[in-house]
Write a protein that binds this DNA or RNA. Structure first.
Lengths: 190, 190, 190, 190
DNA sequence: AATGAATGAGATTTCATTCAT
DNA sequence: TATGAATGAAATCTCATTCAT
């Protein structure tokens, strides 16, 4: 009977769940398969997570935190001009997706059925983007008529949709092209 | 024992499937429930569709065709200026989503797990948008540096993501605000 | 709406059933498939046969009658010596199987599950063989110790088993070899 | 909720499957019935066997192995004369069938439909018999004209068919009569 | 007589969850 | 804590049979 450390078991389950969710989709993976892939007994799985959706939720939370941190870190290295800040933030997101395609796809992808029953679907906040746009608007740098809340939402939808499309087949475009497109269409670049 | 017309059964199944998929998500609806809701025997269901994913696929195909037709119709009524054409096309999409929220959500929403195994996920073509952008680019009306293929993809991702977010709770915004935001961020409006 | 003659429908069903039973086995063929193969509606099928086992039974009865007639006919052409009679009867059976492999396999093959529930499994009578052996025994031409009933049974089991094995793959042996073997092992050839 | 040992579950399933297959035929027994008869949950059944045909296959393999061992054991106790060897081998087969009527009928009987799709039908080898006949032929004890391969096949077909007929209703004959008949018709007794 | 859409009982199969070890 | 055999509710799918046309 194998006996591993607590943390070990959880991280093995998360890692197994991540690759299985990414490859087969949430609904076509079951808890037994995750446990087996993690080389743990099914009982051990239930000792650490309530069900597969708890694994999914944890993956999502970590992914969102990682993405947020990447954006924040990027902004710290950016100059004061909005265009530089936008570019850095976009680069951070694109590179995050490129470096972590599985968590990105699992967290934002369409294959998310059923999860809503088992806990709120976590979602990225458009707040920071909206705040930044509001600042620019007050400074007169973008149109006063723009609804910054909606624009922030729209930008995020675009970024997420674009990156998911790209990750489906990374040979579709180079990351520089993705960055340029997202930057040029960012509402702050008006 | 009810005995109805062929077409009747299929349209009843599609209609029952649509409202159930929209309300509960693809994976939490089963073939028995669809059949019962359509007031048909389960055997009748399988006589018309191979499985619930076949119902889903048919809904998607019809939705995509309807959306495409709505866009095309809108462009017929538009003047020659690009800004008018963009506005008409965006309005057509927003109004289509507003008038057909269930098909729109079922077709484009995230609750689509498992379906990919049972047939290619249908997806909207970015071709028309890309072609239009290319025309503007040749005419010198938008930057020569824009990658029109990627910009078209990005716009569509934004439109779809935005409309799904809106349909989740239509009180979040008025349709005019959605239209204005999408128009102002459209790459042709550079 | 096709309208064919009564007899036509029955023979079409029997013919469709025969080739389907032979190819796929009794249990993997259903009444709908037989009807479709016969290019008839399923309702027509049930107008002529109670179920697929009724089709099977009819095929079996015809096959047994045909085989019996072939044997009788062969004996009419045989001389008075037992060895000639045995050879003629064996040849008749081997040639019958070779000329009618599908009916033979369907009637005598192993793929017969379930049928017993739906009517007695028809089976070939060992009576004629037993009677012939009894005659030889009275004439002192074969051992008085032989139990002619059992020997007749044994011979028939051998003939049927041998022919089924052969029909599985006719390249396994030439029909002459089958005949020689069966003749040489026939209890009348003691 | 009962919780038993692994081996226990498998042997219970095999035993339940054996008696059900023997009584009702392969196609009229289903996995639920086997599980219930074994006093196990249906999930337990599928945890041990892929489907009912896997149970059948295991029964067949065991039966064939048992029959082969019985023959081999019998030959060890036999003297050098062919007639003694034949008699011992025949007795072994007849007694095996008499002592294990259910496995014998399930393994060799006609009620085997559908199984062929789910794995090759196991079958008894005619090799040992053919080899023995070849030896006798070289020694000049049986006709040089006999095709030993076909004769071996024919003998096995006879033995199996005879024993199945007998087991259908053991009052049809005494085992000694069966043995005498099979021995007297064995090609080695030429 | 012929048709075939409709039916639903029943068979197969999956998988989240439990619990004795 | 860890294990994994056992469980059975629930989902999928088949097919013999009916009956209005």
């Amino acid at each position: 009977m194998p006996r591993r450390k607590l943390e070990d078991a959880e991280s093995r389950i998360l890692s197994a769940g991540l690759s299985l969710f990414a490859r087969h989709g949430t609904e076509r993976v079951n808890s037994n398969t995750i446990a087996r892939r993690a080389r743990l007994g099914i009982g051990t799985f239930y000792g650490h997570f309530a069900d597969k959706y708890a694994v999914l939720r944890e993956i999502e939370l970590r992914t969102l935190a990682g993405l947020r941190d990447a954006r924040i870190g990027a902004l710290r290295g950016a100059g004061p001009e909005p265009s530089d800040q936008v570019r850095r933030a976009v680069e951070a997101a694109v590179h995050f997706a490129a470096r972590h395609p599985e968590p990105y796809r699992v967290t934002f992808g369409r294959e998310r059925a059923g999860a809503s029953k088992h806990g709120p679907v976590v979602s990225e906040s458009s707040r920071p983007t909206a705040d930044a746009l509001r600042g620019l608007q007050r400074a007169g740098q973008i149109s006063a008529e723009l609804d910054v809340e909606l624009a922030a939402r729209a930008y995020l939808a675009m970024e997420v949709g674009m990156l998911l499309w790209w990750l489906e087949d990374p040979s579709r475009a180079k990351s520089e092209g993705i960055v340029e497109t997202l930057v040029s269409m960012h509402p702050a670049m008006g």
